[in-house]
Each structure stands twice: as structure tokens, then as C-alpha cells.
């Protein structure tokens, strides 16, 4: 089963252990979610999976060739317009200017940006549009693994819902695998096939949940019911207690 396989992962920053003995597997084509309160090491795990950090102990095996990040802050270059920002990853890969701008134009359409938004600079775009540019930038390099680090948490409720649907649709269309980091249980239920609940610092696995229902069936009623059902699990409720209070 190709996909992501993590065994016995631990990491510390100086004397402080942030992640301890974490193991989980994510089959190819599924969306996994690391759910937990702030400071439980979710982003650290994501950084290790994406190769930005080397794990202190444990192994990460995967067959993905192009893991790519979408961060909470869109991290756009303020001095480049939206089109050049989308093409930034392609520039890093050595794709020629004309070709990368053509691909940026196609992606703008896919993520729902108008073509004249391409010439706008980041400060001229709204928060939601900036996050769309960041998403397009990630998709431009044709990734096979999406690493989503709370990408919707800075958006308001309506925009967040739109972006969640867009991401889930793109994941399905392009047969991507994704690992999402969030502290929002409803977001996890809405997007993920597998949820790994982490306990507060240091991050350990507190609970594992599998949600087999297809994405199209996950309306507000479903999400509400599922959130309540997951919170009925004492280990999940305890790990998320900090957030709930």
C-alpha cells in the first residue's frame, strides 16, 4: 500500500520534547488530519514529513515525490504580483518564464481567481484571495502530497467553508494525498478520512478515528453529529479539553 508510513517518531527542541513516539499510516489518495491543541507538535510533524526538519528518532517512509506546503499565513512575496507568486515554485524547478506564467494562468482559473487578479500585488488582494494564490502556488508544482498547515484558520467562516470545499474537490480531482494540521474538530470531520488526535505537549497519539463517509455526504448535520460522537470518546475529549474550555 503506497502512502505515508510513520513509525516511532519523536522530536525535541533543546530539552523540550514536542513529539513522542508517534506512529500512523495514511494510504495514498486519502486525507489525514493531525488534530490537537496549540503546542502539541502538529506543525513539527508536518515539517518532518515535508523534509524541513530531520526527526530525532523514528522513521518516515513515503513514496511521494513532490510534497508541498500550504501555510496558515499565505507567505506570498509582497514584491511579486499574484501570477509571479503562483509561478514561484515552478521558477525554483527551473521552468521557463513563459511556460510557468501560462501554467499560473490556468491555475488562477482553477482556484477561482479572475485573470486580472494576476497583475495585483498581495496587498491589493483580500485574505481569501491571498490564500487562493498560495493554494495555486502549491498546485502549480503538481504535487502528490499536500501538507496543509492550518491553511484556513485565518479566514472568516464563509470563506473558510468555500476554501475547504475547493481543497477537497481538488484533492479528489487530482488524486492527491493530503495531511492537514488543525485544532478545529469540525474542520477535521469535514475534510479528513483519518483523524489522529494528539495530546497536549509533548504530542502523543491520544485517539485515532476513521471517517468512511464520502465528502459529498458531509453536510452541516453530519459534521455536527460526528463531532458529538467523537467527543463522546473520553480520550479525544480529554486531548481537546484545552480547546473546548
Amino acid at each position: 500500500m503506497p502512502g505515508l508510513e510513520i513509525r516511532g517518531l519523536s522530536h525535541s527542541f533543546g530539552p523540550q520534547t514536542v513529539v513522542e513516539d508517534l506512529s500512523f499510516s495514511l494510504p495514498q489518495g486519502e486525507v489525514g488530519c493531525l488534530l490537537g491543541p496549540s503546542g502539541c507538535g502538529k506543525t513539527t510533524v508536518l515539517s518532518m514529513v515535508g523534509g524541513l526538519l530531520l526527526p530525532a528518532a523514528g522513521t518516515i517512509d513515503h513514496s511521494f515525490r513532490h510534497p508541498v506546503f500550504v501555510f496558515q499565513d499565505p507567505c506570498l512575496l509582497p514584491w511579486r504580483d499574484a501570477r509571479d507568486n503562483i509561478a514561484f515554485g515552478l521558477k525554483a524547478m527551473g521552468v521557463g518564464r513563459r511556460q510557468r506564467l501560462e501554467r499560473a494562468d490556468r491555475l488562477m482559473e482553477i482556484v477561482g481567481l479572475a485573470s486580472d487578479d494576476g497583475a495585483k500585488f498581495p496587498h491589493e488582494l483580500s485574505g481569501g484571495m491571498r490564500q487562493r494564490v498560495a493554494l495555486a502556488r502549491a498546485l502549480a508544482v503538481e504535487p502528490d502530497l499536500l501538507l496543509l498547515d492550518e491553511p484556513f484558520s485565518a479566514l472568516d467562516v464563509g470563506l473558510r467553508r468555500q476554501m475547504q470545499s475547493l481543497v477537497r474537490r481538488l484533492i479528489a480531482e487530482r488524486n492527491l494525498t493530503a495531511l492537514l494540521v488543525t485544532h478545529d474538530l469540525a474542520e477535521a470531520v469535514r475534510l479528513a478520512d483519518r483523524i489522529l488526535v494528539l495530546s497536549p505537549s509533548p504530542g502523543r497519539v491520544a485517539a485515532r478515528h476513521h471517517i468512511p463517509e464520502p465528502f459529498v455526504q458531509r453536510d452541516d448535520g453530519f459534521v455536527h453529529c460526528m463531532v458529538n460522537r467523537l467527543l463522546a470518546d473520553p480520550a479525544t475529549a480529554q486531548a481537546l479539553a484545552v480547546e473546548l474550555s
Binding site: V68, F69, L77, F88, A92
Partner: peptide, 16 residues
């Protein structure tokens, strides 16, 4: 620092 982190995540070569 966050732009640098983003650039590293995209494996940007030093000249870029």
C-alpha cells in the same frame, strides 16, 4: 523568516 521557510519548502535554489 516565514518567507525563507516557504522558499525552503519549495526547495528554491540559492540564486532564486
Amino acid at each position: 523568516g516565514s518567507l525563507r521557510r516557504m522558499a525552503l519548502a519549495f526547495r528554491v535554489p540559492a540564486p532564486v
